[in-house]
């Protein structure tokens, strides 16, 4: 999986117009054709693509992702790894908000089907799903930071002040909320549909026939079953949230992987692009495995004996 991903990125990068050598050249210093050819040979750009890729891959499996072109002599691996934390933090909070909000809204909508609350939630979900992340990011930034001034407009910490949790949170909450919108909306829709279906099942009637209190019928007997398809959705949400996080980070100047990647693409910093996509890919695969584990926890039918 990861090999295929890295190969794809590698090929796409080289198909893009422009010579990778340009990134290494200081435009203010004149360079002869011979000097350029020598540099190309030293960096390996004169080799055929598959050879170049294999060389990169051989180094990568030993944990050597090369050096950043832009930041002279900085190794890619630590550069990428130090960005993992902020991104995970942003995505984690966004997903917690999306999961809690989406599931709660879905349950309320399903239980009070066709009420004003239900219609309101469904309309909000429709709007949430249809608005593209870059639009919500910019609109959110404008409304909450520029107009209302509720939140700082970017960064992770206020420069020049000692670290404090409240400072971190004040920077974190707005991008996390904006990032969660689309996912909350999708989870809400799934949860509502799934719960409506489960509420018609025979075992829910059995629970009522046993004299279980209605609240517990909903929470214990219906919701647990209704969560099954939602867990799968949440797993794939995390993969998709990566895309949204990249927008969010570049709009809010959040020092995560997304910002790193966007900057690297801007400056054609190939080793960093390769390294970042590799690490992101690895994280997404890890999350998918965790999703399968979570699914097995909620559904005894797929637990191995």
């Amino acid at each position: 999986m990861l090999v295929a991903l890295s190969m794809l990125v590698f090929v796409l990068l080289r198909l893009a117009p422009g010579d990778p050598i340009d990134a290494y050249i200081n435009p203010n210093v004149a360079m002869s054709q011979a000097e350029m050819a020598a540099l190309r040979a030293r960096l390996g750009f004169d080799q055929p693509l598959p050879i170049q890729y294999l060389a990169w891959l051989r180094a990568a499996v030993t944990g050597d992702l090369g050096y950043s072109i832009q930041k002279n002599g900085v190794k890619v691996l630590p550069l990428v790894l130090e960005r993992v934390g902020p991104t995970v933090l942003l995505m984690f909070l966004a997903l917690v908000i999306a999961i809690v909000g989406g599931i709660a809204a879905g349950i309320i909508s399903a239980v009070q089907r066709n009420s004003a609350t239900d219609v309101g939630c469904s309309v909000a979900a429709f709007v949430g799903i249809s608005s593209p992340p870059f639009l919500t990011a910019i609109l959110g930034l404008y409304v909450f930071s520029v107009v209302l001034r509720w939140s700082p407009s970017g960064g992770m910490l206020t420069p020049g002040t000692p670290f404090s949790l409240s400072d971190l949170l004040s920077h974190l909450v707005l991008p996390a909320c904006l990032l969660s919108i689309g996912h909350a909306a999708l989870i809400m829709r799934y949860m509502r549909a799934s719960l409506l279906e489960v509420l018609n099942q025979d075992y829910v009637r059995t629970a009522r026939a046993k004299g279980v209190k209605e609240l517990w019928v909903i929470i214990k007997h219906a919701t647990r079953n209704a969560l099954l398809p939602v867990v799968t959705l949440i797993g794939s949400s995390i993969g998709m949230a990566v895309g949204g996080a990249i927008f969010m980070e570049s709009v809010f100047n959040w020092p995560g992987m997304g910002l790193l990647l966007v900057n690297a693409v801007d400056t054609r910093d190939y080793p960093v692009i390769m390294g970042a996509t590799l690490i992101i890919g690895a994280c997404v695969i890890l999350v998918n495995i965790l999703t399968d584990v979570a699914y097995a926890l909620v559904d005894p039918r797929i637990r191995v004996a």
Binding site: Q201, D202, Y203, R205, T206, A207, R208, A209, K210, G211, V212, H221, R224, N225, V298, D299, P300, R301
Partner: peptide, 21 residues
């Protein structure tokens, strides 16, 4: 408080009347 206590019910479909989880 009477259901399941003083009066109880068994349904037709044993395959779907029990909670799978």
């Amino acid at each position: 408080s009477i259901r399941g206590n003083d009066v109880a019910m068994v349904f037709q479909e044993p395959m779907t009347s029990l909670n799978p989880v």
